[in-house]
């Protein structure tokens, strides 16, 4: 059995430093790995990234993250990623990594993802260049996720995104904004491999549980949804 701890949308900045740390002190007793599903900062500044780095560094489990839209806001993505990496946090964007957990090897493929909407109610790469660019980004992210999942040589495979891969886990949000919360292409990518679990954030008013069309369990771990420092999921190995 492998236990995944996961949380997204912690939105840390200097004023919220240390907020999660008390709950993380003994995480090694409760989980084998901690996944961070994006929106780790409030505005995506280097200063905020340092707060995130301090919050999640030195834990007794590996920490694997993707960034979210908030982490992109100040156009300091490279610097933010570097600060987190220097603190030992593995930041994925269209790639993956395999962790040897002793009992099994856990593969995590991660990408921020993007919006676009879900089956029958989605945008298409047609018309204005802005629209083609929007959906093009979505398709590229899904393709990267698919390739990263396929490349993992491991016992258990997990997909980590910020944007949602299915509509079930954004249920609770206004339907009008579903296209800004996720995209069906991410779900299709997850279904292309033998994925045990998909974890995402972004939809604060969403629902925790859903599944892809292919039956892969999907969990929305946005902190307002799980209402805690992290959620725990046990996977058979």
């Amino acid at each position: 059995m492998t236990t995944i701890a996961a949380v997204g949308d912690v939105h840390l900045d200097e004023d919220a430093a240390g907020r999660l740390r008390p709950a993380l002190g003994h995480i090694g007793d409760k989980a084998d790995v901690l996944l961070l599903a994006g929106d780790l900062t409030r505005h995506g500044t280097v200063g905020e990234a340092r707060v995130v780095a301090k919050e999640f560094s030195g834990l007794d489990v590996p920490v694997v993250a993707v960034l979210g839209n908030h982490d992109y806001h100040c156009d300091e993505v490279a610097e933010v990623t570097s600060v987190l990496a220097d603190a030992g946090i593995h930041v994925l964007e269209g790639d993956g990594m395999v962790l040897d957990l002793g009992e099994c090897t856990l593969g995590v493929a991660g990408v921020k993802g993007f919006g676009g909407g879900f089956e029958g109610k989605c945008g298409t790469a047609f018309g204005e260049p802005e629209m083609k660019s929007f959906i093009g980004h979505t398709v590229a992210a899904a393709d990267q996720l698919k390739s990263a999942l396929a490349a993992l040589d491991c016992d258990v495979r997990v997909a980590l995104t910020h944007y949602a891969p299915v509509p079930e886990t954004v249920a609770g949000e206004p339907p009008e904004i579903f296209p800004f919360l996720g995209a069906y292409q991410l779900g299709n990518a997850i279904d292309c491999c033998d994925t045990a679990l998909a974890v995402h954030g972004h939809a604060h008013f969403g629902s925790e549980r859903g599944q892809t069309p292919g039956g892969v369990p999907v969990r929305n771990v946005a902190q307002p949804v799980i209402n805690g420092a992290y959620a725990r999921y046990r996977l058979p190995t």
Binding site: A23, K30, N227, A231, R232, R234
Partner: peptide, 14 residues
């Protein structure tokens, strides 16, 4: 204000 407490349980994914 969202909670930052440790979780008390875990879900078994099947």
């Amino acid at each position: 204000i969202v909670s930052a407490a440790e979780p008390t349980g875990a879900e078994d994914i099947r």
